[in-house]
Write a protein that binds this DNA or RNA. Structure first.
Lengths: 205, 205
DNA sequence: CTATAATATGAGCTATCACTCAGTTTAAAT
DNA sequence: ATTTAAACTGAGTGATAGCTCATATTATAG
């Protein structure tokens, strides 16, 4: 029997309390991000992260239960940025404008952090990241379902707001990830307009 | 300087010629598939694959240049199956029927091999798999563009057949992967009908 | 000033891994 | 029957990885 770790492998073991230790945690996350982009997940060892961060390996394990937790935290912060980028504007009246707002914000965000976004999808074992995904969806999904219900008269008939919300979110996320991974040079305005056109046709008709 | 490997890291070093060695290669691929599903990519060592396959580690390296090549071959074969599943039927006259044919074949295939499909996306380093992706698209894309051009009168105006083909393929692949990874229980007929409805609206109107 | 908690250190442990190679066995070719 | 090529073998190698822990330093609290 191997040692059982009581808390999640993907969360911080302990929150830094003093200014010094907060800086250490930030430096570790920054170093891990750089190394992920430079040499990839596999070659990024915890010792190397600590070295680049100017911290000791012991300090790293003081705050993170393991390698995966570091990247899960990076992913969580990226997801939070995406969320904020969409959520900072007022909610428009029409479904069309809602779609345009959210999707352009999303595409712009992915394009402006393309390398990191791709590296996180490509290289980080997804199981370390499933929680972050679930968290994001839990925030996003009820929010948008509510928005759709309030605009139900604009919806095509037979469209269930709750089904449509998950469907749209997954179409958008899946499609953008696919382009980011395999055809980043086609992740342009023409793509965005086509995506919007397709989704508007689906939701509004 | 590390040793330079002359051929691709993702292809077979040597093709088995005799019946015995062909069986060895098949056993290795089968064992690797099982272990991927049972314990994941990282824990699946080449020694363990050889052990499960009833072959020696030396034989494994006789045919595969490295661990990644084994999984690239598994992926290549899966892709070929998907392609055959779509391509075996005659090409229908209407775009709607074309979409229905290809997409139901694709969804059915993914559902019937869900665990392996998910494991290949989740766990296998994508760079080992990028070639297989490129190969698949090279076959698929011109084929479908040609089919669309022949049905241009059915297309909504302003839809470029070549752009639309890539767009549709990536929407489908991305969306289905997203559902397979994060909501496999929602990968059902209702999902398929909505996807078809959306794409038909986009292409035909 | 003292006691206690927080933070930092890094040598070293255990484990495992991908891969090599010198030699043997089996099949095909002549 | 002999030669040659194909296939197989598996102990061993070098490298590196994630992680622990005993100890030391710094900050906060009373």
């Amino acid at each position: 029997m191997l040692g059982i770790k009581s808390k999640s492998l993907f969360e911080l073991k302990k929150l830094p309390k003093q200014r010094r230790s907060k800086a250490t945690v930030e430096a570790i996350l920054e170093a891990a991000t750089q190394l992920l982009l430079e040499i990839g997940y596999d070659k990024t060892s915890t010792n190397r992260i600590a070295g680049r961060a100017g911290a000791s390996i012991g300090s790293l394990y003081e705050y993170f239960p393991g390698k995966e937790a570091i990247f899960a935290e990076i992913r969580r912060r990226e997801d939070a940025k995406i969320y904020r980028a969409s959520a900072q504007n007022a909610v428009p009246d029409t479904i069309s404008d809602m779609l345009r707002l959210h999707i352009t914000a999303y595409v712009d965000f992915v394009r402006s952090n393309l390398d990191l976004h791709v590296a996180l999808i490509r290289e980080v074992p997804q199981f370390a990241v499933a929680n972050a995904e679930a968290e994001l969806l839990r925030i996003y999904l009820p929010l948008s379902t509510k928005e759709l219900k309030e605009r139900k008269q604009q919806l095509r008939k037979n469209r269930s707001p709750s089904f449509a919300t998950e469907f749209i979110i997954r179409v958008v996320r899946g499609t953008i990830s696919e382009y980011a991974l395999y055809a980043p040079e086609h992740l342009n305005d023409r793509f965005t307009e086509n995506l919007l056109d397709m989704l508007e046709g689906y939701l509004v008709g």
